[in-house]
Design a protein around this nucleic acid. Structure first.
Lengths: 195, 195
DNA sequence: GGTTCGATATATCGGTCCGATATATGCAAC
DNA sequence: GTTGCATATATCGGACCGATATATCGAACC
């Protein structure tokens, strides 16, 4: 995941480690605080793999900075990591967000595939939560119950958000007026079935 | 975090590793999928620390099972882990949820303190996101923008949820008989609305 | 009766990431 | 001039994950 994030940021502009950590912590939504214990080893790993390389600025005499640039090998790796379907785990929460932050580098149909995969996973999880809640709601204490209810509500909102993104993506993919209408109708029907 | 979750579940009932993994994956909200690569080493670590001990059931002759029970040392450790204020990182998302699942083992004022701390953190993050969003100097693409907007909305809803929990906690702090009845009536009505 | 298969159960390996910490340098304020 | 803060790189131990190996049990099927 860090490799993906680093490559994505370096694609936009060559940077050194500290700049990357700032961009990752501040700009990328603030949902992930990257540690140096991850960042610097990952940079070295990427360099060893030939995915990034150091840029040496001659006139810079001041303090030591390791500025990195993406190589063509790194571009390739970036695309692979970006398209890689996730493993649906807890760390996949962040992984998905990082991926979304670089979605502009993906083809529209790949974007739709990834969004739908994520939505399918959330829908599965939602139904699990709902089953858990309706089956044994008396067994849970107030806090666990509230936690699960909140989990259910959040998941529903995440799904709605994803559906919006998918719809927008479909609308932008083939701007044929008739096809769009048919697609939206299908999406609506599908939504009504699963709700 | 895993130590906390394991001790909390073992407090309720002595179990072996596989049962713990089921309970962690299924019952605890479904938001965390625990791997065996974490679970079994953690159990051994806890045993080494003297926080849990094996239970040997004599009549059981069948397949090998390592059933564990919490010791008094483990009870102490559990309380410490439960009260420990988090480090506000990305792994703290799960940590907070796990902690909440065992909130019943905490004193009301500790509960309020932890909830408020969490809320304060989320409010800080919310303001960061809002600042980022309103600063037009940095232009985000559609996806990053949507990600941040969704992050903002989700955070706002999390804060509202926490505020509800805090209010309920404050209301329950002084258990006057009449107040309790009124509160239960409110809770019931609230439950009926949300279900 | 045999076998196949999925759920149960424990264990370990390599790897990613985190949190803490150490160690410098540039810079501005006092 | 020195104090303090942001900048900048680096590493250590540890937590957790994903994959995989291994083995047992029960039920289902032929």
């Amino acid at each position: 995941m860090l490799e993906l994030a680093i490559l994505g940021l370096l694609k936009e502009r060559s940077m050194h480690g500290y700049q990357l950590s700032k961009r990752l912590t501040d700009s990328l939504g603030g949902f992930w605080r990257v540690s140096y214990g991850s960042l610097y080893p990952t940079l070295k790993r990427l360099e060893k793999q030939g995915a990034v390389e150091q840029v040496f600025d001659e006139q810079e005499v001041g303090r030591r900075k390791n500025v990195y640039r993406v190589t063509s090998k790194g571009e390739k790796l970036f695309q692979e990591l970006l398209e890689e379907a996730g493993h649906e785990s807890s760390s996949e929460e962040n992984r998905f967000r990082v991926r979304l932050a670089f979605f502009k580098y993906l083809a529209p149909d790949t974007r739709i595939r990834l969004l739908e995969k994520r939505r399918a996973y959330l829908e599965e999880r939602l139904s699990t939560i709902k089953t858990s809640l309706s089956a044994t709601s008396e067994r849970f204490d107030t806090y666990t119950l509230s936690l699960m209810q909140h989990g259910r509500d959040s998941t529903e909102q995440d799904i709605a958000w994803l559906s919006g993104l998918i719809a927008a993506e479909r609308g932008a993919a083939k701007p044929t007026r008739e096809a769009t209408k048919r697609r939206e109708a299908r999406a609506l029907r599908r939504k009504e079935r699963t709700t």
